Simulated scan of single mutants.
Amino acid sequence: MMEEWDLTSIQAGTVGSYSLYGMMKSALILAPIADKFGRKNVLVICMILFSVFTLGHGFYITSHVSSSCVSLRQLAWEP
């Protein structure tokens, strides 16, 4: 990935750190919801949200809206 995207080791480390942070944030928010409503239901909702925000990310070209879609997509990723 580093060679394909021409990333330095610092940039690649930052990408990895943001991924882990997004998963941690999602787990802390969605785990109690999954305990209350059931893991299968929350997983289905997360898959739908992930799909919607991924699709939305493809339609917006401004960086502000695009980064919002990425952030919301990361929140939906980890049930």
Rank of each mutant, 00 (worst) to 15 (best):
3 E>M: 04
4 E>D: 06
5 W>M: 08
5 W>Y: 10
6 D>F: 01
6 D>V: 02
7 L>Y: 07
7 L>A: 02
8 T>F: 00
8 T>L: 00
8 T>A: 01
9 S>C: 00
9 S>D: 00
9 S>R: 04
10 I>S: 00
10 I>A: 02
10 I>M: 04
10 I>R: 07
10 I>V: 09
11 Q>V: 08
11 Q>H: 00
12 A>F: 05
12 A>I: 05
13 G>W: 06
13 G>R: 03
13 G>D: 11
14 T>S: 01
14 T>K: 05
15 V>S: 01
18 Y>V: 14
18 Y>T: 12
19 S>C: 13
20 L>H: 08
22 G>A: 15
23 M>F: 13
23 M>D: 13
24 M>A: 15
26 S>D: 13
28 L>T: 15
29 I>C: 14
30 L>P: 10
30 L>T: 14
31 A>H: 11
32 P>M: 10
33 I>S: 11
34 A>P: 06
34 A>T: 05
34 A>Y: 04
35 D>Q: 13
35 D>Y: 10
36 K>W: 12
36 K>F: 11
36 K>V: 07
37 F>I: 11
38 G>E: 07
38 G>L: 09
39 R>F: 07
39 R>C: 04
39 R>M: 07
40 K>L: 05
41 N>I: 05
41 N>E: 14
43 L>G: 09
46 C>D: 03
47 M>I: 11
47 M>W: 09
48 I>A: 12
48 I>D: 02
49 L>C: 11
49 L>V: 08
50 F>R: 04
51 S>K: 01
52 V>W: 02
52 V>N: 02
53 F>H: 01
53 F>V: 03
53 F>T: 07
54 T>A: 07
55 L>H: 03
56 G>I: 09
56 G>S: 06
56 G>D: 02
56 G>R: 03
57 H>A: 11
57 H>M: 10
57 H>P: 01
58 G>Y: 06
58 G>W: 04
58 G>Q: 06
59 F>D: 03
59 F>N: 05
60 Y>T: 14
60 Y>P: 01
60 Y>W: 08
61 I>L: 11
61 I>F: 09
62 T>H: 09
62 T>Y: 07
63 S>A: 14
65 V>E: 10
65 V>L: 13
